[in-house]
């Protein structure tokens, strides 16, 4: 076996290398999350209990309020929903997950490193599984950094939000991002092309967001909103309802389906051609 003291290098498995390659990016994204949540929290005292803003928002059309999720803007959960979780935080998490997920195997194929990697005695399935595990770890860590900041700084600005509601929302945001990242991984594994994986996933993400948001306004969209992963993650309003095992299970199942597809597709292909 390798003797650690001889080589100072600490990277061993594909999982470790994949995480290590992104360590700076992950730190950056986490800091971005902290900055986003911190800024929003810092502004909260200006709206908290502000009757004028309440009145102003009340005057907005219901459709506007539903779409942008600005109901009860002056309470803790309402403010967080409107400013953090309705769009910005899930979007940033999804961008991280999709950029990274699409790069996991397709990036190695495009850069040509897949040849030396797959010359090693490791199965293609193991490579995909370890890379996905790194993606999941990274995305959930960045999502968690968001929850930690809100939980830690919230009380200082009198932002009150239930423990369960906050973490249910963080987990849902993380799972939504992981779902899109896993889809991008599967598309990259099936085609070997990052650009294609990113493009298709971006279309899916936008469609999922619009379907979930518009379903609140457009009655004929309601019956099909279950098609949108965004609906299962954030459309069901975890900041109010807390953990919904059913909707989280739907997300987990779709993630599992994407990973399964990635494992099978990558195993069958001619690599790097």
């Amino acid at each position: 076996m390798l003797r650690r003291e001889a080589g100072s290098a600490h990277l061993h498995s594909v999982f470790e290398r994949t995480l290590d390659e992104e360590r700076r990016a992950l730190l950056g994204w986490s800091l971005g999350m902290v900055a986003l949540a911190g800024t929003m929290l810092a502004l909260y005292p200006t709206v908290h209990g502000n009757a004028q803003i309440s009145k102003l928002l009340d005057s907005y059309p219901q459709a506007f309020k539903s779409f942008f999720g600005v109901a009860d803007y002056t309470t803790g959960p309402g403010y967080l929903r409107a400013e953090v979780f309705s769009f910005m935080a899930p979007l940033l998490l999804a961008i991280l997950a999709v950029l990274w997920g699409s790069d996991l195997t397709a990036g190695e194929e495009e850069r040509g490193t897949i040849d030396v990697l797959m010359a090693n005695p490791v199965s293609r399935r193991r490579v995909v599984a370890e890379k996905w595990a790194a993606l999941a770890t990274g995305v959930l860590v960045v999502a968690a950094s968001l929850g930690v900041v809100i939980a830690a700084v919230g009380p200082a600005v009198s932002l009150q939000v239930g423990w369960e509601a906050l973490w249910a929302t963080v987990v849902a945001s993380g799972l939504l991002a992981l779902l899109l990242g896993s889809l991008a991984l599967a598309l990259g594994a099936a085609t070997g092309r990052r650009g294609m994986a990113r493009g298709i996933t971006a279309i899916v993400a936008v469609a999922a967001y619009l379907l979930s948001s518009l379903a609140a306004l457009v009655s004929w969209l309601r019956p099909v909103r279950w098609l949108s992963p965004w609906y299962h993650a954030l459309g069901v309003d975890p900041l109010t309802t807390g953990f919904s095992l059913f909707h989280l299970a739907v997300l987990v199942l779709v993630v599992a389906a994407c990973v399964g597809a990635a494992l099978v597709a990558f195993d069958r292909r001619d690599l790097g051609t």
Binding site: L2, H12, S13, P121
Partner: peptide, 25 residues
């Protein structure tokens, strides 16, 4: 030949040695 450009040779060789199940350093 394409290698992981951001790694050092030592890191890359350690990584592959691990995947190969252990030629000694």
């Amino acid at each position: 030949l394409a290698l992981y450009d951001r790694m050092t040779p030592r890191e890359l060789l350690t990584h592959f040695a691990y995947l190969r199940g252990g030629p000694p350093w």
